[in-house]
Design a protein around this nucleic acid. Sequence first.
DNA 1: TGCCCTTTGAAGAAG
DNA 2: CTTCTTCAAAGGGCA
Length: 554
Amino acid sequence: MPQLNGGGGDELGANDELISFKDEGEQEEKISENVSAERDLDDVKSSLVNESENNSSSSDSEQTERRPQPRADLESYEKAREYFTEALRRQQDGGFFKSPHYPGYPFLMIPDLTNPYLSSGALSPSARTYLQMKWPLLDVPGTAVLRDSRSPTPGQLSNKVPVVQHAHMHPLTPLITYSNEHFSPGTPPAHLSPEILDPKTGIPRTPHPSELSPYYPLSPGAMGQIPHPLGWLVPQQGQPMYPITAGGFRHPYPALAMNASMSSLVSSHFSPHIVPHHHHGLHQTGIPHPAIVSAAIKQEPNGELSPAANTKSPVSTKKEEDKKPHIKKPLNAFMLYMKEMRAKVVAECTLKESAAINQILGRRWHSLSREEQAKYYELARKERQLHSQLYPGWSARDNYGKRKKRKRDNKTDSTPEDFSARNKKPCVQYLPQEKMIDSPASSHGSMLDSPATPSAALASPAAPAPTHSEQAQPLSLTTKPDRHHHFPLLSKPSSSSSSSSSSSTPPLLSRPLPLASLHASLLSPPSPFHQAALHSHHALFQSQPLSLVTKSAD
DNA sequence: TGCCCTTTGAAGAAG
DNA sequence: CTTCTTCAAAGGGCA
C-alpha cells in the first residue's frame, strides 16, 4: 500500500480506522438500521413529500431537469446535486431501491465544484437553481482542458466550473471537494492512466482512485484526472454505480462510491501521493486546493511537500506561514453524509434552517445501517488519508482559532429552556415526541460509528470487490442476523455524543424540534413504530440487500 | 456583516 | 488515559 510515502497514508488511515472502528464495531447495532432507514426514507419521502413542498423532491426531481442551465454555477451545482440524487434515486427506485440507504446506490450528487475545502470557493447558496442538469456539461471542455495538464489549470475549470464533472459523481462525490490543484495539472487524461510523479521519489506512479479524494484536490482540475484512475474501478465493479457517463467518472471518489469492497481495493493500492507534478495552484481560477482556503498551502519545512504543496509555489515558503492557507479539516463520516443527504432532507421538508436539518440528519444517521454508515466511515477514512498525504504537516490544530466561534458548552445548561428559545420558527407541528425519542439508536448516538470495517478494507486490500452492489460488508459479524442484538450495545465510549445521551433519550429528543415541517418520519426514524419495524426487521433483513451483504461476508 | 445554531466525528489540548 | 474543546458543512436566523 503505501508506496511512496512510506505508507504514511495507509498506515495512518489504518491505524485510525482500526481503532475507531473497533470500538464502534462492537457497538454496532442498531436494530433498526436497515429497516428504519428504509422506512424512514420511504416514509419520509412519501409522506414528507406530500406534505411539504416537496416539490422538489419527487416528481419534480425528475422534472427537475427542467432546464438545465447551461452554466455551471457553483451554486447550481450544488443544487444540482440534490436533484441529481433524487433523480437517480428515482430511477433506481423504480426498481428496488427504495431505500435511501441503499448501499451502492448512487446518490449521485453533484459535487460542489468548488472545493469544499476552499473557503473561497464558496458557492453561493442562494441559488437554488437546481440542477439543471448540468451534467451534460460534464464533458465539456473543461475536461479537455484539464487534460492538458498544465495549461488549463484547474482554474479555468473552477471558474466556470465547467463543471461538470460532477455530474456523474458518486453520491459521495459531492463531497469531494478538495481541490483541484493536485490533480489537475499533472493528471493525464482519464483514459490514460495518469502517472503522477511522486514528488519525493520522482517516480511516476499511477494514482489510485483512493488517492483521489473527493474533497481534496479533486476539484475541477481533478476531474480530468479522476476519471482515469477510477476507470479501472468501474469496470471491476461492473456495476455502474452511478449513472455516470462515460466520461463521467471523473469523480475522484468514485471509488468510495463504490462499496466497501471497492474501497478495500483502493486501499490496497493506495498510493501516497496524488499529486501532480506541479501545479500552479489555483491561482488562475483562484481556486486553490479544496482544502485550502487561502492560497498558499503550508508546506513542510522538510521539503516534503505534500502534493498540494507542490502545487503551490514552494517559493513562498515564508509567506506560507504568514498566509497559511487555511487547510480545512477532512470531513468526517457524518459530515460526508450530511453533504450528501442534506439536499434531500431539504427537499422533503420545508425547513431550511440548517440547524433543524442537521437534527434530522443526525437522526437519520443513526438510523442508517451499519453498512451504510460504514460506507461513510470508509470515505472519511480515505479522506483523512488523503488529506494527510496531501498535507503532511497539517494538523487540526492549525485551524484552531480560525473560527471564532466559541462553542458554548453550556448547552447542557440551557437545554431545558433552551429549546424554547430556539424554536424560532416552529413551522409545523413537530412530531410527536414519541417518534423522536424512541429510536434506540438515537439515544446513544452513533453506535455505529465504527466503520464497519475498516479492517475489512484494510484487510483485503486488493480484494476485488465482488460486484455486489452493496458494499461489501466489512464485518462479518455485522452481517449476522444477530444484529439486532447489538442494539443494546449502544454504549459508545467516545466522548461526544454518547455521553450526552446517556439517558435513554437523546438530547434532541428532549427538546422540541422546531422543525415543524418535518414529518415525523424524518425526524425519527426509529420511532416506536420502528420497533414494529424492527421485528419485521429480520424479515427485511433477509430480503434486503443486506442479505447480499451477508453473503459477501461469508 | 458575521456569529449562532445544530449534528457527528476526528483530533488536539488539557487534566 | 480520560475528558474537554475545536473544527469540519450548511444556511436561516439574529444582533
